[in-house]
């Protein structure tokens, strides 16, 4: 059985001015002989939060790792199909992956601050890409990034202490600050709250809401309520296929697909 999805955005009462930031067509991923994603066609709207939900192993993380070409790092992983960012194909051999990753940042499931000071963690990206001509500009970038990540007030007095010494939620916000320090266009978040307690989760969700004003955000989550709270569009994955993609409201209130309905109401998955 094959699900062919017609994404009829115009028909579902969408804003006509929306701009598509990233679009994938017939995106398939193989780990060696095993196919992990099947012909994914999906459009990510600029300055909106898109949530990807689905049971474990359904390919959500594999999908977002395609968008900044992080799957290149994995041996045996082969990505086929088209990924366009601002209408430009990025899934080619000639694409500079480092430039893609500069434009499309990523936050991981487990907070992974570098074993450096808080300051150096945030300054890492700007230093590599030469974004700051002098120390003062760098200081400003670090301060602004930490402020945007809602961490500034908690760490401003101890910027030279190790980032690994922060609490889990603070570490994750530090990673978000690190990701936004180079001013990307898109932020991919791979289950950013799964290792955090509810209070830290609430903080991150608040932050996502704030960040979507300046960035396009894709978030993979296992929490249905989180998807409902933070996202405008939601995609439901199952066994490597995109089953349904629609406005979050529609997905949670009146999904077109029976499987989506079952998953959301907790009948399987």
């Amino acid at each position: 059985m094959r699900f062919i999805l017609e994404i009829n955005l115009r028909g579902s009462g969408r804003d006509m001015n929306e701009k598509i930031k990233i679009s994938t067509r017939n995106l398939s991923v193989f780990y060696g002989p095993k196919q992990a994603l099947f012909d994914i066609n999906l459009d990510l709207v600029e300055n909106k939060v898109t949530a990807l939900i689905g049971p474990s192993g359904c390919g959500k993380s594999t999908f977002i790792r395609c968008l900044n070409r992080m799957n290149d790092v994995i041996d045996l992983c082969k990505v086929e199909g088209s990924i366009k960012v601002d209408g430009k194909e990025i899934n080619t051999k000639n694409t500079d992956v480092n430039l893609i990753r500069e434009r499309i940042g990523m936050v991981f499931q487990k907070p992974n601050p570098f074993p450096k000071s808080i300051y150096d963690n945030v300054a890492y990206g700007p230093r590599i890409h030469g974004l700051a001509e002098n120390q003062e500009i760098l200081n400003t970038i670090v301060e602004n990034s930490l402020k945007k990540a809602a961490l500034w007030n908690e760490v401003k007095d101890r910027l030279n202490q190790p980032g690994t010494g922060l609490s889990g939620g603070q570490q994750q916000r530090l990673c978000i600050a690190r990701a936004i320090s180079i001013n990307p266009e898109v932020i991919l978040m791979d289950e950013p709250c799964s290792a955090l307690d509810p209070i830290a989760t609430a903080k991150i969700e608040e932050l996502i809401d704030e960040l979507k004003k300046s960035y396009t955000i894709v978030i993979v989550t296992h929490s249905m309520s989180q998807a409902a709270r933070v996202s405008q569009n939601t995609g439901f994955f199952h066994l490597g296929k995109l089953i349904e993609f629609n406005l979050t409201e529609k997905i949670f209130k009146n999904p077109d697909n029976k499987m989506t309905q079952d998953y959301i109401t907790g009948r399987f998955g």
Binding site: N68, M70, V73, N98, L99, I100, R101, E102, G105, M106, F108, N112, P113, F114, P115, Y124, G125, I128, H129, C175, R178, A179, S181, I182
Partner: peptide
């Protein structure tokens, strides 16, 4: 840690 660095475009 490596992935974190790659993800910033290093």
């Amino acid at each position: 840690l490596r992935e974190g660095s790659f993800a910033i475009g290093a």
